[in-house]
Amino acid sequence: MSSHSLPISSLLALFFLFVLTRVPTILSVDDPRYSTCRETLTCGSVSNISYPFWGLNRLSYCGQPGFELRCENDVAEIMMNENTLRVLDIDPERQILKVAREDYWNGYCPTKFINTSINYDHFNYGSNLRNLTLFYGCNLPTTPTFTVFTNCSINNTLTDMSYATRNMLVDTRYSTCRGIVVVPVYEAAAKDLEVNPMTIQAALRGGFELQWKADNDECRRCRDSDGVCGYNQISNSFTCFCSDKPSETTCLPPTEGTF
């Protein structure tokens, strides 16, 4: 053995010293919020859902208030005021949420007359939409403006139903209506309804788009630094969960040791 050779035990010690100093994250314990929020949410046909949405396996600090999703019978739903909206699709790049009224999914004779309303703090209506106005119990004549479509049995009471695909002005004739409900539909669906009343269920099921507002640039910078986007419920602000601890902006790269 050469006088300059190191014994095996010394070589092993140097190797372990290298591992511990050069790759310190190997022995670090992940922040549980980092691990939890790395998980995506899946419900039925809607999958890989992440920030700003939360629900199920994604705890509330993984997303923003107002973005909770529920999963009912493999159907993703979001509550907005009195409306339960069925989630049809999510486009994270365009920040578009495609939804439909759950109470109009299987018919157009609801048990309650509730106008469509959204949370404007977090969402705006998308483009290429038109209001479909549904009139119940108004006894309105068929005109170029109104289409008398059918009768509905609502809470065991037979009620006539008519609709209009153009915005309506307030009129004293409507004071006798049992209910008036406005539901957004796509422009193309509204045009189809003007010539074919039988497409009304397809128009309602086709839904409408909402565009959400939620720190997209901050989240992108966080993800680029290997962080996970989340929400600080104490300061009510965006936070970036890193493997060791949260950061307000981005995660710092691991510190490399030297020897």
Rank of each mutant, 00 (worst) to 15 (best):
155 N>Q: 01
139 N>S: 14
148 V>L: 08
66 G>D: 01
67 F>C: 01
91 D>M: 02
223 R>S: 12
90 I>Y: 02
132 L>R: 04
259 F>N: 13
104 Y>N: 01
36 T>E: 02
188 A>E: 02
63 G>L: 00
140 L>A: 06
20 L>D: 13
172 T>M: 01
149 F>K: 07
29 V>W: 08
28 S>C: 11
31 D>Y: 15
242 C>A: 03
31 D>A: 08
245 K>W: 07
65 P>L: 07
73 N>K: 13
49 I>E: 06
5 S>L: 13
30 D>I: 05
154 I>G: 02
15 F>K: 03
179 G>I: 02
36 T>W: 01
219 C>H: 05
249 T>R: 14
119 N>M: 07
29 V>D: 01
235 S>I: 10
204 L>E: 00
233 Q>S: 15
254 P>I: 03
110 P>Y: 11
71 C>R: 07
1 M>T: 12
139 N>K: 15
35 S>T: 15
53 F>E: 01
123 F>D: 03
168 M>L: 11
9 S>N: 13
164 A>T: 07
179 G>A: 13
86 R>S: 04
161 M>H: 08
137 G>M: 00
138 C>G: 05
245 K>C: 07
252 L>H: 09
196 N>C: 14
255 T>M: 05
234 I>E: 03
102 E>I: 04
176 T>R: 14
5 S>T: 11
36 T>Y: 03
89 D>T: 14
199 T>W: 06
83 N>G: 06
43 C>E: 04
99 V>W: 00
167 N>R: 11
129 L>W: 00
211 Q>L: 13
178 R>W: 10
48 N>W: 05
184 P>H: 07
96 I>W: 00
103 D>V: 08
237 S>P: 04
121 D>A: 09
76 A>M: 09
208 F>L: 06
54 W>R: 02
202 A>H: 14
3 S>T: 10
246 P>E: 00
206 G>N: 09
30 D>R: 02
72 E>M: 14
229 C>W: 03
215 D>F: 08
104 Y>T: 00
139 N>Y: 13
187 E>N: 12
229 C>Y: 02
7 P>I: 14
9 S>A: 14
123 F>T: 01
211 Q>G: 08
